[in-house]
Design a protein around this nucleic acid. Structure first.
Length: 888
RNA sequence: GGACGAUUAGCUCAGUUGGUUAGAGCGCUACAUUGACAUUGUAGAGGUCAGAGGUUCGAAUCCUCUAUCGUCCACCA
């Protein structure tokens, strides 16, 4: 057979783009061309705010590892790629760029349509970049199903769900206190806030000389809108005032009516133990306001700050139009003049800032749209909160088959904790980039529908929806769901609920909860069966990657230098679910070295031509100890890796594979095969290589595919079959495999001894165990120890063997070791005698090691059996769930 | 204040549900070198598994407490 010259090292540049193109055109990324049980993963859609970073590279690696593994198991795998329009994030980014370009107020100068054109241009450009980057990572996604949260199908789905929820009374419009970004001119949800510590002054004062209670505040200007003072109900100092109302004039438009109320949440030990209540400008105070209202003892609400961060007329003539900071000084000045200010103290305060715009958010009462999480869903007699708890606790409607599993499980605890404090979700945003709220107004009329109502004079709501409203629908909007008539698309029936979802813990609640909520509400199905939480990537010193710290690394640059496989390996190896990991180039280098090692193993194995005979045609009796051992190691590896993959222990799987590839295969078996050549060895090597490529393929798709095609001359690695150990089983003979383990120990001991005696080792001193054939060999460690100690009868030397030149045969017990590569056999013999003498001196070490061998000697078949059982358990559990699901 | 992590070799981290002698990668030291591979090979040094108690035949692993670091949530009016 004619063979072409294979390069000495793997050149990824020569293969990656070509191979990706092959995959794409092969059609195997598209499950329509595959058969088997469906397996679905929806790519968490990257925001169209720019280019992909290493975090995305990690996500792509994770989802692709799983997708490729499942495909090799023979499943109909769907991995849907997509992008997210990321409402606020994208608009904020474009506005910043426009402002940097000289447009001081983009919204005012460009208008709604004008600004949207700019944002759209930017988004489209980002999308193109992102998509090319995903390709570069080797992600095996179905490009024919590419989705975008803001495209036509997805937008239709958004409107459809909004209208349904509106009609079910789950979406309502209300006047409530919300987080407001003055710079962004928009609301922010609680989850979009970052809490930062800053210096503040705590002022202690009284509203008036005759007011009985002293209060403290860091926001004196808001006190112009106070309507109550709250104290702890058990606080003896203030109990007698509870229920009373005082009228005080602090300069606001109308004198303040301050009612003394009792509230458990007041800490009697903090400050004066009394709290001035400003319902309009504090979330906590607003909640007291609501509580008082339900109790039938309402208090007032006065907004003194407007949406531009300026004081309103309600704050009084002197304050109207002032910024909050100026108003604060003015009010403090007034308190001083009046002798009402009692103390002023520096404290550190934690304030909420807008995630996207960076300014400190104001709490303002506004009319906004909300999703009610406490109202029972019509026809389900459970509210959203209860549903959210149910799916993780016992499964949807108590069905264990509809239970969501989270890896690692500790996140489940955090989830429940979080759901308990879930408040109504504010879904309206005062920005323009996003799905516009499908509600129209005319006079006092309000209409909600998919399209504008008939008739003149209807005005659509100006606001857009929170970006998570659309990404919450991602698991099914990507499958073409967009309303009643599409409810039962084939894709939806086949691929939903999806099988596996992975996300970073930083968006665990933000996104996961919304996906569950949307899917349960819309389809009455869980969105996914398993969630895998990954940690954040940090730089070598443990810092977060960010633009501001200038430590950003472009994944494409790493790929250009080391190749995609090396990068993927470095991202997956040494990383455990839910934990942060550090990224540094040495790790990528290690990956590259491994990739190259694999390439060279393959090069060596295939260099003498390919055998056409299959492993099954070998008769087990003809195998040497080394053959038997490597087949056993291979079988064990296959089982362990399979188990690790089932349990999402990707790092562990990498480690197991690396160990087998480098230590077992390259360093021992391949070396042994150099001087114990046999036809069987070639067949075994070829078979192991072939299976090894399949095992590695999810982690390093390119190099495995390159070897598969270039050296094994085969096609379609991507849909080949995950190795099965049944073919290996018949070759696993405990005694033989154990003999090789034992030989390894002896060889290492000899090497040690050489090294201790500073004996120059001959060039390439290698050794191999040769099982005595046609004899029942029983490993008797005592026999061996005795032989080594005494150097008597059973240790023999011979000058040469028939098979290899310059080799010395040493027989120890029933084991024969060939020491290979000796230049001078006579000299070598003398050395070896010395070495053996040294070993005998170190008998403690040796005997310990040999006693360890005793364990291994019994193990091989038993280990295989145990591993196989464990894997079966893992897979069985899953197939039981599948069975339950399909029976519904 | 509440919750959740982490603490293992010089560095970065594994450790599969308690099991014989605690592992890997990188780094370091010594040695080797023409045919699979220097993106290499062989060997070596290096650990009181944060600390203290407890459970157990047996603990890095389970329980309690302490210390240090980190993250999230709530919050200081």
């Amino acid at each position: 057979m004619e063979k072409k010259e294979i390069a000495k090292s793997y050149d990824f540049k020569e293969f990656e783009d070509i191979i990706y193109h092959q995959w794409e055109t092969s059609g195997y990324f598209n499950p329509d061309n595959l058969s088997g049980e469906p397996y679905t993963i929806m790519m968490p859609p990257p925001n169209v705010t720019g280019v992909l970073h290493l975090g995305h590279a990690l996500e792509n690696s994770l989802m692709d590892v799983m997708a490729r593994y499942q495909r090799l198991l023979g499943k109909k795998v769907l991995l849907v790629p997509g992008t997210d329009h990321a409402a606020i994030a994208t608009q904020a980014k474009v506005e910043k760029m426009l402002m940097a370009g000289g447009i001081t107020n983009p919204r005012a100068e460009l208008g709604r349509e004008g600004l949207l054109i700019k944002v759209r241009e930017y988004a489209e450009q980002s999308k193109a970049t992102i998509i090319s980057q995903i390709r570069k990572m080797g992600t095996s996604c179905d490009w024919s199903r590419l989705a975008y949260t803001f495209d036509e199908v997805r937008s239709k789905a958004v409107n459809e769900v909004f209208v349904r929820m509106y009609n079910d009374g789950l979406i309502y419009r209300g006047y409530r206190v919300v987080n407001w970004s003055v710079i962004g001119q928009s609301t922010c949800s609680d989850d979009e806030l970052n809490h930062v510590d800053r210096e503040a002054k705590l002022y202690t004062f009284k509203y008036s000389q005759d007011f009985p209670i002293t209060i403290a505040t860091t926001r004196p200007e808001t006190k112009l809108g106070d309507t109550a003072v709250a104290v702890h109900p058990a606080d003896e100092r203030y109990q007698r005032f509870i229920g009373q109302t005082f009228t005080v004039d602090v300069g606001a438009a109308t004198p303040l009516e301050i009612k003394i109320i009792a509230d458990e949440s007041v800490d009697p030990k903090f400050g004066t133990g009394a709290l001035g209540v400003t319902p309009a400008h504090s979330m906590v105070d607003y909640e007291m306001y609501v509580k008082q209202k339900t109790l039938g003892t309402p208090i007032g609400m006065v907004a003194v700050i407007d949406q531009f961060g300026k004081m309103t007329e309600a704050a009084g003539q002197e304050y109207t139009g002032l910024s909050v900071l100026v108003a604060r000084e003015k009010f403090v000045g007034w308190l001083k003049e009046q002798g009402l200010l009692i103390a002023e103290e520096d404290i550190t305060q934690s304030v909420g800032t807008s995630d996207r715009f960076g300014d400190v958010v104001e709490s303002l009462p506004m009319t906004q749209w909300f999703v009610d999480v406490n109202k029972p869903i019509p026809g389900k007699d459970k509210n959203i909160k209860e549903l959210l708890i149910e799916v993780l606790a016992i499964g949807h409607n108590g069905d264990a088959g509809q239970k969501i599993e989270v890896t690692p499980t500790r996140y489940e605890k955090i989830y429940f904790n979080w759901i308990n404090q879930l408040r109504d979700w504010c879904i309206s945003r005062q920005i323009w980039w996003g799905h516009r709220i499908p509600v129209w107004y005319r006079g006092g009329e309000q209409y909600c529908g998919l399209t504008a109502p008939e008739g003149e004079g209807w005005q659509q709501d100006e606001d857009t929806l929170d970006t998570w409203f659309s990404s919450g629908m991602w698991t099914f909007s990507t499958l073409g769901w967009s309303g009643f008539e599409f409810d039962k698309t084939n894709d939806l029936k086949t691929f939903h609920p999806t099988s596996w979802m992975q996300m970073g813990y930083e968006i665990f609640f933000l996104w996961m909860i919304r996906m569950i909520l949307m899917s349960l509400y819309t389809l009455n199905e869980i969105p996914f069966k398993q969630v895998y939480i990954h940690g954040m990537l940090r730089d070598a010193s443990g810092k977060k990657f960010s633009k501001s710290s200038g430590n950003n690394i472009d994944p494409l640059e790493v790929v250009a230098q080391y190749g995609t496989d090396a990068l993927r390996f470095s991202l997956l190896n040494g990383v455990t679910p839910g934990n942060d990991s550090r990224f540094y180039l040495e790790k990528v280098e290690a990956g590259r070295n491994l990739v190259n090692k694999l390439w060279n193993i393959a090069r060596y194995i295939t260099s003498s031509g390919l055998s056409k005979v299959d492993i099954l045609s070998i008769s087990p009796e003809t195998l040497s100890a080394a053959d038997c051992w490597i087949l056993h190691q291979a079988a064990k590896t296959i089982l362990q890796v399979s188990r690790d993959m089932e349990a999402c222990r990707f790092s562990q799987a990498c480690e197991t594979l690396r160990q087998f590839t480098w230590d077992d295969l390259a360093d021992w078996y391949l070396e042994a095969s150099k001087f114990e050549k046999s036809e069987a060895k070639q067949i075994i090597l070829q078979r192991i290589l072939s299976d090894l490529l399949i095992l590695w393929h999810p982690f390093m798709p390119f190099v495995t595919e390159a070897i598969w095609q270039e050296m094994l001359l085969q096609k379609d690695l991507i849909i080949s079959q995950w190795p099965n150990i049944d073919d290996y089983k018949q070759f696993i003979v405990d005694e033989k495999a154990a003999q090789f383990e034992l030989a390894k120990v002896i060889i290492i001991a000899i090497r040690n001894a050489r090294s201790e005696h500073r004996v120059e080792p001959s060039r390439k001193l290698e050794a191999i165990i040769h099982a005595t054939e046609n004899k029942d060999v029983i490993i008797n460690q005592l026999e061996i120890i005795t032989a080594l100690r005494t150097g008597l009868g059973k240790v023999e030397f011979s000058e040469k063997t028939e098979k290899v030149e310059n080799a010395i045969l040493v027989s120890i017990g029933s084991i024969e070791i060939y020491l290979i590569g000796a230049i001078d056999a006579e000299k070598e013999k003398v050395r070896l005698e010395k070495d053996l003498a040294a070993i005998i001196k170190r008998k403690d070490l040796l005997s310990i090691k040999l006693s360890n061998q005793e364990f291994i000697a019994k193990a091989p078949a038993a280990i295989i059996a145990i591993e196989q059982q464990k894997l079966a358990v893992l897979r069985n559990e899953q197939s039981q769930i599948e069975a339950q699901l399909s029976s519904l």
